[in-house]
Design a binder for these strands. Sequence first.
DNA 1: TTCAATGTATCTATCAGTAGATAGTTATAT
DNA 2: ATATAACTATCTACTGATAGATACATTGAA
Lengths: 172, 172
Amino acid sequence: MTKKEALLKAAEDKVRLGGYNNFSFREIANEVGIKSASVHYHFPTKADLGAELAHQYTNAFLSALGDVDDIKANNQNPIDVYTQLFRNALLTDNKMCLCGLLGAQNESLPDKVRLEVKRFFDLNLAWLEQAHVANGESEPSHAAILTVSLLEGAMMISKALNDHSYFKLATK
Amino acid sequence: MTKKEALLKAAEDKVRLGGYNNFSFREIANEVGIKSASVHYHFPTKADLGAELAHQYTNAFLSALGDVDDIKANNQNPIDVYTQLFRNALLTDNKMCLCGLLGAQNESLPDKVRLEVKRFFDLNLAWLEQAHVANGESEPSHAAILTVSLLEGAMMISKALNDHSYFKLATK
DNA sequence: TTCAATGTATCTATCAGTAGATAGTTATAT
DNA sequence: ATATAACTATCTACTGATAGATACATTGAA
């Protein structure tokens, strides 16, 4: 893992626990073993780091989701696959969805970060809509909103109560 | 409105837009017209302010909800009343639910704030469970979790996309 | 093949601004 | 007189950011 990748990972952990202001250049630099000034070499500003973080998070998420048609061809329900990915994000990492937390604090974010958060949800809704179409739902775009809302909300409440059984109950 | 009330209001606006770190004693003092040091007279520490803020927010929320039995006696659906209160919080104030945002960044909060956020959701789930019982639902506690998850999630996504029509769609 | 030029990744040192917090003082109102 | 609610002044710690230096690797031309 390059230093740049390590910086993004360190920042991701902190943001997913406490939001955009929950990490500083000094903190992540210390964790990685360089000086805070050197972080600016990789990311000119904090907003640049935040935007790249959200962008890569989105890409990794969609890549993990895979293709709706492939899932169907495999006799799986894409909505179950989607739910499972959220479940892993919470249960394995014990952390919020990066873009969920950032989205909630949208108005305090730098523009370029806000844009990447929007991209996350636009792409998620598009994927879910396609999934609901493939499932033969009558109102796929409506169903897509319900799906992602329920998952993000259940995640938030599980974190707030520090009890993952709420997420499990909401998604069973 | 006393200075103390004004300080809480100023802090609430900022927290609901960007989370716990999105306000400083200096900022809210300026808005209210006193010095930042004087804020410590009303709230010894920032954590005290945050905890009192969440506590009063919870009380106001529950008070606005009213009594489940009264709502039923009035031939209204308590779940509709609950949904409407969330809708107003988003559409009228154009802001997130205070405890939703704080809950998402739970792990980075001072203990006493975390406790108040937990209280918000515990009381909300209890109210919703009672409401679903009154509606004759077979699994009231399960339904309560689904209800609050969907609303918090829809709120979060509407903020992330800066488009309230997502919330409307999710709650129609 | 050598050597100058360039690029990469880091460093030290420093800056102005802001954070929450404290001590001690003052004005006002009961 | 006492309690309330503000003040001034100051502290330490931390914020993101910048300038300028260093070491090292890569590259391209004479």
